[in-house]
Amino acid sequence: MLSVYLNKIFSLNFANLLNAIGLDFEILSSYTFIVVCLGTMILATVAGMVGTITVLKGQSLIGDAIGHSSYPGIIIAFMIGMSLDSVSLMIGAIISGTLAFIIIQFIDKNSKLNLDAVLAVILSAFFGLGMVLKSFIQGHPIYGKVPQGGLSNYIFGQAAFIRTIDVQLILAVAIPSLLILFLFYKEFKIFVFDEVYAKSIGLSSTLMYVLLVLITMSVIATGLKLVGAILISSFLIVPGITALQWSNRFSHVLIIAAIVGSFSAFVGTYISSVYAGMSTGPCIIVVMSGLAFISMFISPKGLLANWLRRRKYLNDLSKSLID
């Protein structure tokens, strides 16, 4: 009896342990899964942290507009380079995203239009341009000869197809971005909290904007291949929004956003690997948004806590009235 039991314990290896908590070891240890998972997790970590600043600056929808606007840059980069090389497509995305950002700022400053109208028009015009160019190269005598199947991946993302080189590219963007965020942590903090005061103590807000746009753009551009132009904005803003429910300290919010991002990326990637046909990006976003909604309910600032507080207050009030 005892020997059987002992035997069972010793045979409990790592794989069984994972199986026991419902994870499939075979999937977890497959090379493809590891590559995809690393890619999405690193991306989501950086995007979550950088995006927190975007959210706090009240610019959550700008990320969406820029995500859509990077699409024509990808097609143009393809037309120039005649290849699906990740790096050149990424540079194309950065250029057209930045151009869109500059035009948005320009119109916002120089017309009486509201920012959201500007975003809507620029977003559709740029994405429309992408559609025009894409239809132009389809069946074109020159461009048509080069395989271009990979291009549509940049609209919805195709995380399942990423290679080691893509993960390296993500790292190449992630490390400098995180470094900038870490080094200029104090400067970003005061720039987001009180821009006028920041200026008065000699901090150049132009420089801060340039840094912020630079890292946001590169995160968006690397994320396109994994998540796509339509959905990349979620990676930026949802972890930040979630983290803001949990803490009142900027440093903690950044860390929570990173954790929420990478955890969602892991779970989302796992789910999409288990159920064939599910795309990775959307799965991650569903997990992320789920966490956001749960946080809004159960966090210390959340709906539940508010409700309990109000009930306690009313109880105390009625008690004191009775006394």
Binding site: L56, K189, I190, V192, D194, V196, Y197, I201, R249
Partner: peptide
């Protein structure tokens, strides 16, 4: 500029920013 302290009109501040009172005061040291 190091010898000057400016207290702007309070509408320049981003109130949603996650930060504590002590943290804000610490910004004066930056």
């Amino acid at each position: 500029y190091k010898k000057i302290a400016y207290i702007p009109q309070s509408n320049s501040v981003n109130w949603d920013f996650p930060t504590t009172a002590l943290d804000v005061v610490l910004m004066g040291r930056y």
